[in-house]
């Protein structure tokens, strides 16, 4: 068929299979509905003298049976779709993370190593990839039909999406949430390549001059924006003796659980760190003074992502 791309992910093939099942069920139902209507139209047309028998008495038998049949089919379809969906959105733990920022009207991608690309995404095959996505303005949606997946990209949030490509190739990337005049042009391509090719690309193929490691770039920001003034060099934490203020250690923060002043305990993920930087008043860490300033409007989403990458690289800390 014109433009048909077979799915290149396992999950995509499962989705195709589900759609096929839905299609088969629909055809069966349509055959039944159209078949009966046609049959009755011919057999019971006004002019036809066919014997109609006695008008059948009122019975609930039919009603009950077709309601039950419909319910049963529906329930199966629901379970099938739901189960697959849950798997679709649970990334394996070892996924390679890549950061994506949507903006009117382009996709900006940054790899761990600092390689940046626009309206393109290079990924290795046979490896789970997890996209961490956010938007600088309106809602966008990252969609790759060949993978059979998509997800909205919202301002002020991190949404994730994962996939594992099986075959090398170039696939269409669309923005599928209306985001303004240029919505239709917010397209690009996903290039899947073998692991060696990908590494080659990482070290040479990416545009020159933008080659700084994300964490390294984050480290520079960490110093330039004065984070180290409170949280200490290397994120070791601050105390009145060392930095002059008491501020929590950031090394080892990612993935740990943090107690808030509200009494709640949260797991420190990317979104949490982002909130700490942009809206610190929302995440008052227990045991520290509320003095961290908000950096909202001063640090762009892309830079926040670099800071996060840096903080994530500081794994050696002694946090619980």
């Amino acid at each position: 068929m014109n433009g048909y791309v077979p799915s290149v992910t396992v999950e995509g093939r499962e989705i195709d299979f589900l759609i096929l099942a839905l299609f088969v069920v629909s055809c069966a139902v349509l055959a039944l509905v159209f078949g009966l209507i046609l049959l009755y139209m011919i057999r019971y047309r006004d002019e036809s003298g066919v014997y109609r028998g006695h008008p059948s008495g009122k019975t609930w038998r039919f009603e009950i049976s077709w309601t039950a049949a419909t319910l049963a089919v529906f329930f199966l379809l629901f379970i099938w779709g739901g189960d697959l969906y849950v798997r679709l959105f649970q990334p394996p733990a070892d996924a390679l993370q890549i950061y994506v920022v949507g903006k009117q009207w382009m996709w900006k991608v940054e790899h761990q190593g600092g390689q940046r690309e626009i309206n393109a995404l290079h990924v290795p095959i046979n490896r789970p990839i997890q996209l961490v996505m956010t938007s600088e303005d309106v809602i966008h949606d990252f969609s790759v039909p060949a993978f059979r997946i998509k997800h909205d990209v919202l301002p002020g949030r991190y949404e994730t999406l994962w996939f594992r490509v099986e075959k090398p190739g170039t696939f269409e990337l669309f923005c599928t949430q209306l985001c303004g005049v240029g919505h239709y042009s917010m397209t690009g391509e996903v290039v899947a390549m073998s692991q060696p090719d990908f590494e080659n690309w990482l070290s040479g193929g990416a545009p020159a001059g933008q080659h700084e490691d994300m964490a390294a770039a984050g480290k520079e920001l960490y110093a330039a924006r004065g984070c180290s003034g409170c949280h200490g060099e290397g994120g070791v934490g601050g105390s009145p003796e060392t930095t002059g203020v008491s501020a929590p250690a950031l090394a080892g923060l990612i993935g740990s659980s943090v107690k808030l002043q509200t009494g709640a305990t949260v797991t420190a993920d990317e979104k949490f760190i982002r909130d700490c930087i942009l809206t610190p008043d929302k995440t008052p860490v227990a045991g520290y003074p509320q003095i961290m300033p908000s950096f909202a409007g001063q640090i762009s989403e892309e830079k926040v992502l670099r800071l996060i990458a840096y903080i994530k690289s500081l794994r050696s800390g002694n946090r619980t």
Partner: peptide, 25 residues
């Protein structure tokens, strides 16, 4: 009846979570 049934059945496609991920938008 014919067109509504067809439309309704495709509603079942998009109501099936995983299928909607591909078909939505």
């Amino acid at each position: 009846i014919g067109l509504f049934t067809t439309g309704g059945l495709t509603g079942l496609f998009v109501a099936a979570l995983a299928a909607d991920v591909h078909l939505t938008q």
